[in-house]
Simulated assay, not measured.
Amino acid sequence: MGAARQLYVKRSDLVTLDEARENKKIHMQNGESFTVFKGELIATNQDGYQMVIPQSQKDKYVPVELEELSPYEALMAKGYAEMGNINREISEAFNHVENEAETATTDLITGAYND
Score class of each variant (00 low, 15 high):
Leu41His: 03
Glu89Phe: 03
Ser56Pro: 00
Asn30Tyr: 02
Phe37Thr: 15
Ala77Asp: 15
Thr105Asn: 12
Glu67Met: 02
Met28Gly: 05
Asp107Asn: 06
Gly111Cys: 00
Glu67Ile: 04
Arg11Ser: 13
Glu92His: 14
Glu65Phe: 06
Lys10Asp: 15
Tyr72Thr: 09
Arg88Pro: 06
Leu17His: 14
Asn95Cys: 10
Asn87Gln: 05
Glu89Trp: 11
Lys60Phe: 05
Ile90Ala: 12
Ala20Arg: 00
Met28Cys: 01
Lys38Gly: 08
Glu65Tyr: 04
Phe37Lys: 13
Arg88Met: 05
Phe34Arg: 11
Gln6Cys: 09
Met76Phe: 11
Ala112Trp: 03
Glu19His: 00
Ile26Gly: 02
Gly48Thr: 04
Pro63Gln: 13
Ile53Pro: 02
Val9Gly: 02
Met83Arg: 12
Gly2Val: 02
Tyr49Asn: 04
Lys60Gln: 13
Lys38Asp: 06
Asn23Gly: 07
Ser91Pro: 05
Lys58Tyr: 13
Leu17Phe: 15
Val62Ser: 01
Glu89Leu: 03
Arg21Gly: 14
Glu92Leu: 00
Lys25Gly: 14
Arg5Thr: 08
Asn114Ser: 15
Val62Arg: 03
Ile26Trp: 02
Val15Gln: 06
Ala104Arg: 01
Glu19Thr: 13
Asn45Thr: 03
Glu100Ser: 07
Phe34Leu: 05
Gly31Glu: 04
Val52Arg: 05
Asn99Gly: 11
Arg21Glu: 15
Leu7Phe: 12
Leu108Pro: 05
Val52Met: 08
